[in-house]
Design a protein around this nucleic acid. Structure first.
Lengths: 100, 100
DNA sequence: TTGACATATCGCGATATGACGATATAATAA
DNA sequence: TTATTATATCGTCATATCGCGATATGTCAA
C-alpha cells in the first residue's frame, strides 16, 4: 500500500462517495441478485446508476480504489462486487503519524 | 478541515517530503536565524534549497499544505516559518473510519 | 528613502486526471 | 452457437495540477 496512491484515490468526491456508501451498503442499495452485502459487496451497475455517471466512469473509479487497496473485489458470475477493505483503512490510520 | 483538500494536499511526493522533514526539523535543517525548530519551524528558503525546486514552487507547496490546515505558519520579520499542525493529523486519523 | 533580501502571486507550457462514447472481454441464457 | 448482460479497456477532449520564470509585496538595514 503506497501512501501516495491511497491519497490520490481519496482525492476525488465521487470516490469518497463510493466509500461512504460502502460503509452501509444495505442503507444505500437495494440488492438485486444477492442481498449479502457484508460478505459480497455492491456491483458496478449499482454504482453506475446511483452515481449517475456512465458505466465506464463508475468502473474506472472502482478500479482506482482497488489499485489503492481500499476495496476488495470478488467476481460472481458476470458480476464484480466491491466492498471496503477495512484492513486498509486501519493501516492508513497507522500510517498517519508514523510514516506521514 | 475539508477531507478532500487534505487528501489533495497529501497527493504529492514533494509535499509528503516536506511533512516528513518537519517531523524532525533539527535532523534535516541547519537553522540559520533561529534554532528553536519546535516552536518556530522552518522557513521557505530552507525548503527551496533542500528540495532543489525554485523558491516559487516551494512557496506554493507550503501554501497548499497551509490551506489544507496541515501546517501552521508564523511570520518573524522577513521570514515565514512553517511547522506541522499535529492537531490536524490527529483529526485526520479520527476522520478515517468515521467520515471516510 | 533606497537597496537588499524573503516570500507570495501571476501567467505559461507540460503533464495528469476526469468524464465520455465506442469497443473489447467475460459469463450466462436462449 | 448466438444473443444478452455485466464489466473492463481504449481513445479523445476538457479541466486540474505541477513546475518554472517573472514580478509584486513585505520587511529590514543603511
Amino acid at each position: 500500500m503506497k501512501p501516495i496512491d491511497v491519497f490520490k484515490a481519496l482525492s476525488n468526491e465521487t470516490r469518497l462517495q463510493i466509500l461512504e456508501w460502502l460503509k452501509e451498503p444495505e442503507k444505500h442499495f437495494t440488492s438485486q441478485e444477492v442481498n449479502d452485502f457484508q460478505n459480497v459487496g455492491v456491483c458496478v451497475t449499482q454504482f453506475h446508476e446511483k452515481l449517475k455517471v456512465t458505466q465506464s466512469t463508475a468502473s474506472q473509479h472502482l478500479s482506482i480504489l482497488h489499485r489503492a487497496g481500499l476495496v476488495i473485489t470478488s467476481r460472481r458470475g458476470k458480476w464484480t462486487y466491491y466492498k471496503r477493505n477495512e484492513e486498509a483503512f486501519h493501516q492508513l490510520k497507522e500510517m498517519i503519524g508514523h510514516e506521514i
